[in-house]
Design a binder for these strands. Sequence first.
DNA 1: CTACTAACTTTCAATACGAAAGTTAGTGAG
DNA 2: CTCACTAACTTTCGTATTGAAAGTTAGTAG
Lengths: 125, 125
Amino acid sequence: MDHRSPCPISSFLDLWGDKWSLIVIRDLMVGKTRYKDLADGPETVPDSILANRLKKLAEWGVVDKVRYHDRPPRYAYVLTEKGESLRPVLLAMSDWSQTNLPSRWSTPDWFKEARPAPRFAPEEE
Amino acid sequence: MDHRSPCPISSFLDLWGDKWSLIVIRDLMVGKTRYKDLADGPETVPDSILANRLKKLAEWGVVDKVRYHDRPPRYAYVLTEKGESLRPVLLAMSDWSQTNLPSRWSTPDWFKEARPAPRFAPEEE
DNA sequence: CTACTAACTTTCAATACGAAAGTTAGTGAG
DNA sequence: CTCACTAACTTTCGTATTGAAAGTTAGTAG
């Protein structure tokens, strides 16, 4: 990933400035872990976008992809620390929308704090 | 503007989820007011995008366009309250980049607090 | 007139998006 | 041991957005 300038804001937007990446992060933050669950949010991410974004998120080190069941093959996507640290950004966005846009959902209290990452068997320390 | 869902995060991204809109907001927050100055940032917004975004920002009520000089015609773009209230979001983004990306500029202290909007003569209360 | 500047606007090739269909690996029913 | 079904992708392809460059409009200055 190359950046347009050393500005931290523009660099943030180089990574996250699109309509879907942070939606996927949000869903991981509310506890979703599987591809299917991520695909079925209130906004219905296109499949082609979801697969692409999950790949990017893994490359950038903000999610771990864990094969937690072999037969049938099943995968879990879990936020890393780096991914979890995006929460304040999402909360700031949420606040802005709630005070500036009419009738948005209000942020549930449990979303406001980092939750322990779901644990999956393979190769965890 | 229509929203994908009532989620405040996805609604925020419906408005701001692109690579340039918040760059323009950032530049207005550092005190730039004129088209030319906005066009000459460290990232060089394409003209076609800048004009388009300024139009949207005015429509959405986050900037005021003020003709502050008649001959020659000169315009100033100034953030409204609604626009100014995006500052916490930009600061959260900035924080994330500074702790997670190498060698980004650090946020100047004066950027961290809302500054009085520049005053221009025409039709202000 | 001619040159020059601010503030746009238009053009157009390239990239990104997104709906839909197809693929792969596996389970379970008959 | 074929048929139907599900999770997790991948591919295709028409549409929308992007961005580099050139053009436009209104005005000043020589």
